[in-house]
Amino acid sequence: MVATPIVEVTSAANPQQSKVLKAEVVDLNFHYGSVQALKGINMPLYEKHVTALIGPSGCGKSTLLRCFNRMHDLYPGNRYEGRIKLHPDDTNLLDPKVDPIEVRMRISMVFQKPNPFPKSIYENVAYGLRVRGVSKRSVLDDKVEEALSGAALWGEVKDRLRDLAFNLSGGQQQRLCIARALATDPEILLFDEPTSALDPIATASIEELIGDLKNKITILIVTHNMQQAARVSDFTAYMYIGELVEFDATDTIFIKPKNKQTEDYITGRFG
């Protein structure tokens, strides 16, 4: 199971070197109403690396991911405690005084199910810029092309940018959503199980894309697929019932985890 990833992880030029902190989760507790979903999470996020969150269903990995762009603010009764510090300016993303819209302007997200807007391909990618007030045609054109190229979709759609995004295939829709997230030059890109609704070929292309993107951007990915975590990530956090059990370089987690529970999960003994 871990045979192929070893090669890939080592090819990632030993992540422990040249690691710069991009963000830091400090003593994070999160409550859905009266239910505590995250308990005392402490975790670093390194710049231009891929960090994977793994763990069984209900362990809180998506909940943790959605703290980073304050998605929980959309629903009443949710409560954060603790901090997520974003470097280099040390902004606490969870500070109630920090506008969630400001946070989302810096941190983009790609969802589990492709969710293109009921607009043309072009307008989908331009959306983030438009809500930021960019309306100059030349700027939009350049950014749209750049983002679509970045998401490895430009070649497939450049002749039909005016088509409705719904006409694309599932894999293309997800790459469109990645392009949409890239168009605003985010500092961190969040992926919430981005391939769980896709077929294996589309999954492979998304994974390849994540590999390319990490040279430019910090990535945090939730996945329930351990092979995927092994293939795409440099660091892995294993979570269980709201707690962070172990965080380490991905090869360490997959080859010699320190925690027995992590090992059991990795080797498929439970989960």
Binding site: L74, I101, Y127
Partner: peptide, 27 residues
């Protein structure tokens, strides 16, 4: 209109008003 479309819009930094007008209404 499914919630994941709204979430997609909010995640892009859109306000409630922008989400209502530019995503929910066309959908």
């Amino acid at each position: 209109v499914p919630m994941n479309l709204r979430e997609g819009s909010y995640a892009m930094g859109a306000t409630r008003f922008q989400t209502a007008l530019r995503v929910v209404t066309p959908a």
